[in-house]
Amino acid sequence: MAMLDIKHLSTVFSTENGTVQAVRDVTLQVEKGEILGIVGESGSGKSQTMYSVMGLLASNGRVAEGDISIDGRDISPKNYSKKEYDKIMSDIRGNEMAMIFQDPMTFLNPVLTIEDQLIEPILNHNDISKKEASERAIELMRKVGIPSPEQRIKQYPFQFSGGMRQRIIIAMALACNPKVIIADEPTTALDVTIQAQVLDLIANLKDEIDSSIIMITHDLGVVASICDRIAIMYGGKIVEIGTADEIFYEPKHPYTKGLLSCISNPEEKEKKELHPIPGSPPDLLNIGNWCPFVDRCENAMKVCKMSMPDEQEFSKTHYCSCWLTHPLAKEGADE
C-alpha cells in the first residue's frame, strides 16, 4: 500500500478576480522509501499540491475535492469538521509528515537558539524530558553533518551559513522519524557546491531512515541525480509521471519533451541549439476544461481544445495525459 495516497485532489483559491484553480484533479501515490520528484514551472501547482496535503494552504485557499491518506489513515479535509481536522493535522505535521522549506534564511526564528527550535517538535510529539530531547537533537545535528554539535546547538541561526541552516532544517524534519518528508525546493537558495553537499546528504539519509521523500523542484538536473520517480506538473495537473529513466529517455508529453530540449546539458560535446517552449504558462484564473498545454504545443490538434485527455499507460510506472499519444489520435499524428 502506498505511504501517501492522493486521489483526485483539487484545490482552489478565491481571489478578488475570481477563483484560481491551482490544483486540478491530481492523483498521486508515494511508495515507502522512494524519492519522488515533482517538477514544474512557477504556478504549475506543485507546491500547492503538497501544501494541500499538509493542511498549510493560505486562508483564501481550500481543498475543493479529493481524498488524501497517509499510511492508511484518512486525512482528507472534507471528511472532518474544521476543528477535528486541525487536531489531526497538528498530530501528523512534524510527526508523520515533515516539510523542508526553500529559504533557510527565513524559516528559522532568529531570536531562539537552535536547541529551542530543534527540540520543539521532539517534545511536542514524544513524552520525554527536555534533557533527552536535547540529546536527540545533538544526535540529529551529527547525522546531518554539522561539526561539533554540542557547542553549536547553543548558537543562534545568524551564526550559521546558508548550507548549515538548511542542514538544521533537515534535522528538524527528521526529528520524529516522519513517514513522509516533503522538500519544497530545498536547494534553490544554495550555491552549487553547497547544493551538491545537501543533495548528497538527502540521498544518504534516504538509505538510513526509510522515509518517503517528495522533492518539489524546477531543476531537472536535481531530480535526475536523486529521484526514483518523477511527476511533471503543468497548469495544475500532472501531465506525465514515470521513473527517472522513462521521463528522461522516453518522454511522451510534448511539455516534458519541451522542458528537456530547452535546458543545456553541459556533458554534451557538441553545442546544441536550445529549443525554448514558445509562449508562457496558462492563467489558472480562467482555464478551460481542456489540455492546459494546448496554446504552447506545436502539435496541438482540434480535440486538444475540446476536452481533457485521459491518462494513458505506457508501462506499469509510466503514465501520460496527452491526446497525441491517444490510440485514436495516433493515425493523425503519424501523417
Binding site: 553547497i194 538536473g221 535526475a224 541525480s225 528522461f248 535546458i263 546539458n265 553541459p266
Partner: peptide, 27 residues
C-alpha cells in the same frame, strides 16, 4: 573541477555514474 562536478546533470544515467568531488566546508 569541484565546481563543475557539483553541477547537476539533467541525465539520470550520467548523474548516477559520475564521480562527484564534494567540497567540504563553505566559502
Amino acid at each position: 573541477k569541484a565546481l563543475l562536478s557539483s553541477v547537476p546533470i539533467p541525465d539520470p544515467r550520467v548523474a548516477k555514474s559520475r564521480e562527484r568531488i564534494v567540497l567540504q566546508g563553505e566559502l
